[in-house]
Amino acid sequence: MNAADDPVVEVLLVEDLDEDAELTIRALKRCKSITSILRLPDGEKALDYLLGRGEYAARNTMNYPRMILLDLKLPKVDGIDILKAISTKVEFRHIPVVVMTSSRETKDIARAYEFGANSYVVKPVDFSVFSDVASKLGEYWMSINEGSPKIAVQSPLSRSVGG
């Protein structure tokens, strides 16, 4: 695996719906501070990526994404399971995880926070609101929020590797 196969990922978007993913990516791209987004369509792939398994076996798992945008209802491994997996690894706890989902069920919201979500956002149906929310999220977590040094230290390194 060469550097080109292990590009820098600033935002890891775990979203099974193509349309939602496209809209989200569009909105995130408005945010100047975001230069790279990786979208994965299911929970299993997301875990493979984070843990360096399967098709990502050769990946340097120390290259943490600066934020994870996570849908809850995902095929194979759902969002809560990913949150659980993240919370069991100390290094991963430094990655901000924003749950972005359709569900407004209080049970889902409570469970998301219980397993370590840093933020919970209900996907707005209205397009302009949706774009606005996605942009604001990117803006906040990538620019306004001061990320953990554990991740910030990794970022310039991986950026130089990834080109």
């Binding site: 719906l17 939602d20 989902t101 359709s102 069920e105 996907k123």
Partner: peptide, 21 residues
């Protein structure tokens, strides 16, 4: 109702979103 909240809204979001686009 869980799947209603999830699955029924998703296509609407796409309709509204792409019409907006």
């Amino acid at each position: 109702s869980y799947s209603v909240s999830h699955d029924l809204r998703a296509p609407l979001r796409a309709i509204i979103g792409f019409a907006g686009l």
